[in-house]
């Protein structure tokens, strides 16, 4: 239950981040104000007690008071996310390439990959806990396990979806397979790859936080559980805000890299203009 909730929360966070990205700074400020307003409105309409839903200014106060603690926990979570994401890219990209270029690998790897997409990987969290114990390794493993799939699938699809006429064009220009890959196939696939990386990053955040729920002894996910366990809702919400900010910042970091790498791709040009 908690796990599912966390997942939908981060997914909706991702959607919001995308809309913020396209809306510009003024709109994102407005949407932030709106969120705070709705938050107050909910409390007022349903007459919610602070131990159920603490008001924003109390949460802000908690963030101020527990600043150093939250920062330390954020650092723990951040390291796990980055490790999970980096592993996903390092492992997922080559596997995606293998699937795209080898028919045997495609037949061999793709079906189990698709099937395993349907399996909630989070269900494996307790197993990882049993294997690796509490802490960093378990959390990174969960993060990696969830985040690697979008990288593999988007890389494979991006590389495979090249227009066959482009291949003919390349052959007509005497290109070797290598030059065709470097100059046409890979650049054509990059938008799909980056779409995968953005999903992967948000999944890496989910994975790390879920890991901390299940097998954490530190980190923001652990902090949320610890705080709710003590009925300190305002501190729990302070940690949730911290995770949200972290997720948004990481998402934009990937998007920034995308903008730099794909600066001459048409999609980038149009949004930049």
């Amino acid at each position: 239950m908690a796990v599912e909730a966390a997942e939908t929360q981060v997914v909706s966070l991702r959607d919001r981040a995308t809309s913020i990205a396209t809306g510009g700074p003024v709109l994102s400020f407005v949407s932030l104000l709106l969120t705070v307003f709705v938050w107050y409105l909910l409390i007022w309409v349903f007459d919610l007690q602070p131990f159920v839903l603490p008001p924003p200014h109390v949460v802000a106060g908690q963030m101020w008071n527990h600043g150093p603690m939250l920062l330390a926990e954020t650092q723990v979570t951040l390291l796990q996310i980055l490790a999970g994401f980096a592993l996903s890219v390092l492992v997922g990209f080559p596997i995606g390439m293998l699937i795209a270029f080898s028919r045997i690998m495609d037949r061999l790897l793709y079906p189990p990959l698709i099937v395993s997409q349907a399996v909630p990987k989070i269900a494996l969290a307790p197993v990882f806990l049993a294997w690796f114990g509490f802490g960093f390794r378990t959390n990174v493993s969960i993060s990696f396990l969830i985040a690697v799939f979008p990288v593999i699938i988007n890389t494979a699809l991006g590389l495979k979806s090249l227009d066959p006429d482009m291949v003919r064009l390349g052959r007509a220009m005497g290109a070797s397979r290598w030059r065709l890959f470097v100059q046409i196939r890979l650049p054509s696939a990059m938008p799909a790859v980056f779409a995968g990386l953005k999903i992967s990053m948000t999944f890496a955040v989910i994975g790390a936080v879920v890991g901390e729920f299940v097998a954490g002894s530190a980190g923001l996910g652990y902090a949320i559980q610890a705080a709710t366990g003590l009925f300190n809702m305002s501190l729990a919400f302070a940690a949730i805000v911290a995770i949200s900010v972290l997720g948004v910042v990481l998402f934009f970091a990937v998007e920034l890299v995308e903008r730099i790498v794909l600066r001459s791709h048409p999609q980038q040009q149009r949004t930049a203009a």
Partner: peptide, 12 residues
């Protein structure tokens, strides 16, 4: 030299 029905330019 080969010119196809579609221009097949590299967009980037």
């Amino acid at each position: 030299g080969f010119v196809f029905q579609r221009d097949l330019l590299l967009e980037w």
